[in-house]
Design a protein around this nucleic acid. Structure first.
Length: 864
RNA sequence: GCGGGCGUGGCGGAACGGUAGACGCAACGGACUUAAAAUCCGUUUUCCGAAAGGAAGUGAGGGUUCGAGUCCCUCCGCCUGCACCA
């Protein structure tokens, strides 16, 4: 029958209101039900949602709806990562208050997310900029202080002398501030640090237990933590006249086996020794400035030549007391790692070799391939860095000669320890987490500086330390610092006048525990033990791989710190992690080079033109959607034109979720046509006569198809293979369409059609929830799909009783045969040999053997 | 430089070591229509062939196997993470 088109514009808001009114997605802990906590990384309220959000939240929503239907008690919350620089920039540029800018954006984006039909528990919504959220952050910080997890220390920062602010490394471009363009200075500032390094080894070891995290992410974290085992030991130092200095030079190495190959020592330009000597050495001062100037841009660092400055000091070789190693300050030694000092072994380290060649230092090979002649083995322009296995051996190394690298390391380590000049030492690349920011729009750090008492934490009963609302952004620097009264307070310890800390927290702190807060968002403590025990950990976390290191590592650290201070019972917040790909799109630009929005590009005869100016456009690469390249498609426009279901369906189709998906108009059109096709199928099936005769033979094949499809979809959704689940749904809809087309429809076929269609509707409900509700009602159900359990396929319909087996001759497919399942080789052989295709290709050949893989394949191997 | 991943039709992509190309998009042919859209039916890896059928085919080369897109080795290309980490 002719049916009306499905109209998402009318239907979608109606069902959203229905779910809202019936509080379908509000979660309450129920002890007798298995819980499932699904979470997508919460958004920054930048203003409007983008396609990346649509993809992320659609995936999470499919999981949430599928799990809910499958009998889980699902928690699926949403909130806002609401502190940060863009709000302050808006205040500076447009005079809006950061709070109103942020809350306006939240209101807009909340509305946009609601129009997507997400099954979110909005009653748990949190915004990190709300004092009811950040007060707990402040309380926990004080607990962390008491637990020894907080440190205040002087560290080097990038200082923008125009904006009067500290810049993150990412904000320094070619040595200049990204906003002001001023040449960035290095400054030393007292900053707050969270001692993430206290958990270095634990954070590293526990990665092995995260077996439902992508291998890639675990590896990135492993490299970031960067554990290396080595030795710290001290050289005796003397000056050019042979006079011994009071202090020695302590270095870190992982290659103590190569100690006999040492030909110099090098220290960082920032090493205390270099600083000390520079006080009376202008050339050294100049060298230090040169190194510091180089220190900002990665590219120049990469290309920089190895350079050193001889300090006029010499280090005594620990085992060859007559050997004196010259000591340099060098541009390739980092103060931030190890001891900021090394010994150079040019033969076995490329940097040391480059340095040695430049300054004509000896290159002494001490490791060589086993069997090489120590007298003739030499090093050219490449260091010999082999160190593993039994194929390398120590040479020119006194008491180490003939040993393997690990044996030599052990022997040197032992000797250093016995002689008291060195100890074994594990070093990590991971640095403590600097959390101070000289900004307004962040969580105030809850401490007070008192002249008498020093640094004193604010009393817990005085929390939260709220941001002042009356702030001005009229001059550069931190508005909290400029505020006339806010920072003036009294000391919590002695009561005398004191100064508030005006730094605020890095916003990564806000996002390091929000998932725990969602368990009990209104609680008087950060998270209640009861709620955490029921809901945590997050069963499925979904987000972009760009957060693979910082956010996920900080969150893992924060759980441990919260555990240590009694706020939570576990260390690992995310049991399973999924990192989805980006949304990409073609780029267009005019011949003049200006980027053009896809909405303004029209295609004619295979050429692209500007819709208004009609000038021809150049089609550029397919790249991540970004405002700068204008290759963005606004989700709101798409939802208005096609509905949320179509957008959701497209996001999940075809491309595997972990890969980048290309947004195309044709793809959206295809998804739109499919929603209409589904609607037609459902209206046609709804008109069929009802029958209870489901088991009869007429409909059997369709029933099998439907039950198998649901079994496959269940499997695919469980494993987040959305694109495959969607392929199954297409196939099932094709089967329903084909059955509908048959002229004679028995009662049994009608019943099978109805069953298959209901499976289809329930099957696509997680992806297209509005259409599913509408279809479900049309099929005559008085209850909503959200309250309908996921269909259970019948095992006897999923199982196959016959099977199609491919028949190969010498590994090439020649024929196929459909037989009863479970046939043995002896029963199968005569059937197979009688096949036409097999006989043809066996002509004149002798059978050597027949390989039978039951129910799968037969391979006839023959000669001649 | 070091590490990780990926190379399959015109495109997105399917394939427990067992019939390569499921499903979708696009294209082409046909039906319906005054016409278009929508819809429906069909074709679509390449080569030979009217067809039946045959040959080749998963970046290149080699290997293991009755059988390799899948496992191993060498190479090429692309993507990605870290990057002077001692």
């Amino acid at each position: 029958m002719a049916s009306e088109r499905y109209n998402p514009r009318e239907s979608e808001p109606r069902w959203q209101a229905f779910w809202d009114k019936n509080r379908c997605f509000e979660a309450t802990a129920e002890a007798d039900k298995p819980k499932y906590y699904v979470l997508e990384m919460f958004p920054y309220p930048s203003g409007r949602i983008h396609m990346g959000h649509v993809r992320n939240y659609t995936m999470g929503d499919v999981i949430a709806r599928f799990r809910r239907a499958s009998g889980y008690n699902v928690l699926h919350p949403m909130g806002w990562d609401a502190f940060g620089m863009p709000a302050e920039n808006a205040a500076i540029e447009r005079g809006v208050h950061p709070a109103s800018w942020t809350y306006d954006n939240i209101a807009t984006m909340r509305g946009q997310l609601k129009s997507m039909g997400l099954s979110l528990d909005w009653s748990r919504e949190v915004a990190t900029c709300d004092p009811s959220y950040y007060r707990h952050e402040q309380a926990m910080f004080i607990d962390f202080m008491n637990a020894g997890l907080v440190e205040r220390k002087v560290s080097q920062v990038n200082w923008d002398p125009v904006d009067h602010t500290v810049l993150a490394n990412e904000q320094v471009i070619d040595g200049r501030g990204w906003r002001s363009g001023a040449v960035v200075e290095k400054r030393e500032l007292a900053q707050w640090f969270l001692k993430i390094t206290a958990f270095s080894d634990d954070l590293l070891k526990a990665l092995d237990g995260l077996d439902r995290w992508p291998e890639k992410v675990r590896l990135m974290q492993k490299n970031w933590i960067g554990r290396s085992e080595g030795m710290r030991f001290t050289f005796e130092l003397e000056d050019a006249h042979g006079k011994k200095l009071d202090d020695g030079l302590t270095v870190f190495t992982t290659r103590h086996d190569t100690i006999f190959g040492a030909s110099f020592c090098a220290i960082s330009a920032d090493h205390p020794l270099a600083r000390h000597l520079a006080e009376h050495d202008e050339d050294l001062q100049a060298f230090r400035r040169e190194v510091a100037a180089l220190g900002t841009s990665e590219e120049t660092i990469e290309k920089a030549e190895k350079k050193g400055y001889p300090l006029g000091l010499y280090a005594r070789h620990p085992f060859h007391k007559d050997v004196k190693l010259p000591v340099y300050a060098a541009n390739f030694v980092l103060m931030g790692y190890g001891e900021g000092a090394i010994f150079g072994c040019p033969a076995h380290d490329q940097r040391d070799l480059d340095f040695a060649r430049k300054y004509h230092l000896p290159v002494i090979p001490v490791v060589a391939p086993r069997g090489a002649d120590p007298k003739t083995f030499t090093i050219g322009n490449e260091a010999y860095v082999e160190k593993d296995g039994e194929d390398t051996v120590l040479i020119n190394s006194g008491f180490l000669d003939g040993l393997s690298v690990p044996e030599a390391k052990e022997k040197v380590a032992h000797r250093f320890e016995v002689e008291g000049i060195g100890t074994r030492k594990v070093n990590h690349r991971l640095r403590d987490w600097g959390v101070s920011r000289q900004r307004y729009w962040g969580c105030p750090i809850p401490v007070v500086h008192c002249e008498a008492c020093g640094v004193v934490p604010v009393k817990k009963e005085d929390l939260p330390v709220k941001l002042p609302e009356d702030v001005k952004f009229d001059k550069p620097g931190n508005p909290l610092d400029h505020h006339p009264s806010w920072k003036h307070t009294s000391c919590p310890a002695c009561g005398k006048p004191a100064r508030r800390e005006t730094d605020t927290f890095d916003t990564f702190i806000d996002s390091s525990w929000y998932f725990a807060r969602f368990c009990s968002p209104q609680a008087a403590e950060p998270v209640t033990a009861e709620a955490a025990r029921y809901w945590m950990p997050v069963d499925q976390y979904i987000g972009g791989v760009e957060h693979a290191i910082l956010h996920l590592l900080y969150s893992r650290f924060f759980m441990r710190a919260m555990h240590k201070t009694g706020h939570i019972h576990l260390d690992e917040p995310f049991a399973s992690l999924f990192t989805q790909g980006m949304v990409v799109h073609e780029t267009f630009r005019t011949e003049a080079g200006d980027w053009v929005l896809p909405a303004e590009a029209v295609q004619k005869d295979g050429q692209w033109f500007h819709a208004r100016t009609h000038e021809p456009l150049l089609v550029g690469g397919i790249e991540k959607m970004s405002k700068s390249k204008k290759n963005v498609v606004d989700p709101e426009t798409i939802i208005a034109a096609y509905g949320a279901d179509t957008a959701r369906w497209f996001m999940l189709s075809d491309t595997p979720p972990e890969r980048d998906i290309e947004w195309t108009e044709a793809g959206v059109e295809g998804a739109w046509r499919f929603t209409q096709k589904l609607w037609r199928l459902v209206t046609d099936v709804a008109d069929l006569p009802r029958s209870a005769a489901v088991a009869a033979a007429d409909g059997l094949e369709l029933r099998r198809t439907a039950h198998r499809a649901i079994a496959a979809i269940t499997d695919d959704l469980t494993n987040l293979r959305f694109n495959r689940a969607i392929a199954q749904l297409y196939a099932l809809s094709n089967a329903v369409g084909a059955a509908l087309a048959s002229k004679e429809k028995s009662a049994a076929l009608c019943a099978a059609l109805r069953e298959a269609t209901e499976f289809l509707v329930l099957g696509f409900a997680p992806m297209m929830p509005h259409l599913a509700e509408e279809a479900w009602a049309l099929l005559g159900h008085g209850t909503a799909v959200v309250n309908t359990p996921w269909p259970t396929p019948l095992a006897e319909l999923v199982a196959r009783d016959d099977v199609t087996i491919a028949v190969q001759v010498n590994g090439k497919r020649r024929d196929e045969i459909t037989v009863a399942k479970g046939l043995k080789q002896a029963e199968l052989e005569p059937l197979v040999l009688a096949l036409e295709g097999v006989k043809r290709s066996l002509e004149g050949k002798a059978i050597a053997k027949i390989i039978v893989v039951p129910d799968r394949i037969v391979n006839i191997v023959c000669k001649g």
